[in-house]
Every structure is written in C-alpha cells, then in structure tokens.
Design a protein around this nucleic acid. Structure first.
Lengths: 130, 130
DNA sequence: ACTTCTTACTTGCATTTTGCAAGTTAAAAA
DNA sequence: TTTTTAACTTGCAAAATGCAAGTAAGAAGT
C-alpha cells in the first residue's frame, strides 16, 4: 500500500486491514496459528492465493513477520509483530460486537479475550545464533 | 448478505463490515453526519455509487435506518440503530490503533473517544406525532 | 412562473479484488 | 524412490470498487 485516503486513523487503518480476511488471519494467529497450513485450516476456508497475497501485504505493512527458517525447513513460522499484536483489542471488540449483535455466533474461548498485545512479539532474532 | 462464512463472531462481523467504507460511514455518523451529502463530504471522497450501495447494505443489516421524511422532504435523515451504535467501541479501538501504529495520523477530537453507544438510537418515531 | 441549484441518487464502464481450481517445487515420510 | 505434505503460483471467472456522467424532485432565486 502506497498511500492513505486521508489522515484519519480509522480510514488509514482500513486502508491496511479493511477487507474480509486480514483480521481473520490475525484472529487465527492470536489463537496460535503459525504456519501457512494452520491458516488454511481455519473454518472460513480461505483460498490459497488470497492467503499468500494477504500474508505478503500484512508482512509489508509490518503486522506479521516470518522468522528465519530453521535447519532443513524452507520457510519460517509466521508471527505477529508488536504492530500486529496491537490489533488484538480491535479483534476482541469485533468479537464482542459479533457475539452480542449477530444471531447464534460461537462464543470464543476465554483465552481469546484474555490475550494481550504484550504476549506476542517475543522478539527473537539476533540472540542465540548458535 | 445471506450467510456467514463460519460461526465465528469476528468472521461474521467482517462479512457485514469487512470492507474499506462501512466503518468510515459509521465514524462519520458518530461525528454527526446524518445526510447523504454529509457523508459525501468526508475527506475520504467516497463515490456516490459506493455510498448509495453501502447505505443500502448497512440498512439491510440493521446498522442504520432512515427516519421517515419530514414535510416537503423526500428522504429522511440517516441515523445509527442500536446495533450500529454498538460498533462505536470497535471504531474507537481502530482509531487508537491507527493513531499509535501509523505515522502522522490525525488526532480525533475528544468527543469521538467520548461517544458511547447509548448516546445514539434515541428511539424517536411514534411519539410527538403532532 | 420559470430557470437554476442542491440533494439524493442511478447508470455505464474500466480497473481491481476475490474466489475457485489446478499446477509447481521442495522437503519429509513410507 | 515413489508418495505425501507444505507452501505456494498461475489462470480465469465473478464480484467489488472507482470515476464520470446522467436523472428526478424539491428549494431557491428572479
């Protein structure tokens, strides 16, 4: 994404995550998903091309990152960055809205509402490069 | 909208408001917009066809309603319903995220963060039909 | 009364995004 | 070494978005 529609923080946020899938991916990662196949196996059945494109966009926007691949693995795991984890209160409010205002929705597990941005972005990287 | 991708309240919420414009419209209405032209004159420059279609969708989803037109007016004003006003905490969290995580965004006025769902949907209608 | 303006849209068409299905590449498992 | 699994890419149809122009009805000016 190159530019924002306006200086409004809401409109700008929607320029990044204003679509049907981005926050579903964030939700899945809050719930522990770390791999492409974890994300594919959510009940919403995202298609592979959309998932790949969305992961690229979210990485470009600095909301997620891929850790460097471990020995004998081609790709690293996906993780929320601090900026991505800062969306947790947003998805929690969205969940509360859906639960309270839409008929017959699932009740998210307690650990979803218990999640805090600080629980993520454990900042690995340079240390322990053995 | 006919059906949800899953029972997840987040995914279901996004089935309704998961696009670039719906929450911009809600924000404008929280800030006092009530007419089509109010909504057109936001800094994001929504196009007329999208605005008309989105208003229809939001009305179908029960998030906004048009009050019955007053004497000599063809259309009534738009207002948030209780269900639409329940989105206020969501847009406030989104604003906090945009402000804190994106560079150089505007600071919303205090009354935006002070808005509460209960301030809207004052339930006019039948009374005072003088 | 009659042109002009404003409000609230609709229509047409090009571009972009989404969605489904199938193909690809590399590592892991049998 | 054939088969699976993981992580994508590619092709193409369908839907959403965006821009520009057109329309209809009430309001305002003269």
């Amino acid at each position: 994404m190159t530019q924002f529609r306006s200086g409004c923080p809401i409109a700008s946020a929607l320029d990044i995550i204003g679509d049907k899938w981005s926050l579903v991916i964030v939700r899945a990662m809050v719930m522990g998903a770390t791999s492409y196949s974890d994300l594919l196996s959510t009940p919403e059945k995202i298609s592979t091309n959309i998932l790949a494109e969305r992961l690229r966009r979210l990485e470009d926007a600095g909301l997620i990152r891929q850790s460097l691949p471990r020995q004998g693995s081609i790709r690293g795991a996906y993780a929320l960055t601090a900026r991505g984890a800062a969306l947790i209160p947003v998805v929690q409010e969205l969940a509360r809205w859906g639960e309270s205002q839409l008929p017959d929705r699932w009740t998210p597990p307690d650990r979803f509402y218990a999640a805090r941005p600080g629980d993520f972005d454990v900042r690995d990287g340079d240390a322990a490069a053995d």
